[in-house]
Structures are given as C-alpha cells and as structure tokens.
Amino acid sequence: MSKPYIICVDDQREVLAALKKDLNFFASHFRIEECESTAEADEILNELDADGTHISLVVCDHIMPGETGIDFLARLSADNRFVAVKKMLLTGLATHEDTIRAINNASIDFYISKPWDSEALIHSIKILLTRFIVGSDLDFQDFIPILDQQTLYKELRNKN
C-alpha cells in the first residue's frame, strides 16, 4: 500500500522548504508533496484521486497570486472527492473577514499564522492526521508512532 499524502501549497519556495523540514517528522508514514500554486495542487490532487491514493492533509498558504488559500480550501470542501481531506491554513496575513470565511465556507480544520512554532505545528498536524486515519479505511495500528494518543483514544471511543 502506498503512503497517504500530505500536500503543501505556498508560492514561496523558501517557505515550502522550511515547512518541509517540520513535516519530515511524518515522512516515515506519509508522502509529502509540495506545490507552488493551487492550480498545481489541483493537478496533483486529481492524479492522486484517480489512482485511489489517500490524501490526508492539505496545508495551504492564504495570499498567493491567483486563487487564495481560503478559496482553494473552500473549493476542496465542496468537492465530494476531497471532503475527508484535513485542511490547514498557514498564513502571514489574513483579515478578520478572511478568517470568518475560512471557518464558515472552507471548513478549515486548523489555522496557523506565520511565523509558526515547529512543535505546535507538528502537534496540530498529529491531531488532524489521527482524525483522518480513524475516519478512513486505513488501519490506525500502522500509524501509531505519529498519532496523537489522546485524540486517538477519543476518536476511537466516539467511533464505537
């Protein structure tokens, strides 16, 4: 079985590189794919979906040339194929209105502002990935080292 994917979208390569260093924590169990635009992310998402590969999480910047992160994540939320994908917004600048829209329309699971704290980022992603794994047809036993134990316990109890 191929590893589930984590997709990162940010138009700045330097930021992607910094983000990737943190996400390396999950590299043992997840494939990390980077994109410089939402259009590029669309291509990857379509490809992976066509192959039946699991997509666990999208981490996306907000302000980019072209489509904004919130618009992109809202589009994913409205797409049946990607409803289950966890969505995280990572941004240096978002207005109050952006934030409201993010919560109301984009079903964003987590919001992190730049510059971010590595430990906090990893912890939040652990929680999101745990929820994703439990909600999917994957066996959580295979992912134990990178899951958040508390969340896992809670999610499993709710599920049963």
Binding site: R13, E14, L16, A17, E34, C35, E36, E40
Partner: peptide, 8 residues
Amino acid sequence: RFLSTRDI
C-alpha cells in the same frame, strides 16, 4: 532552490 516544484 532554482527548481520549481513541477521541475522537481
């Protein structure tokens, strides 16, 4: 980082 994510 002269390669784009596509190039990579």
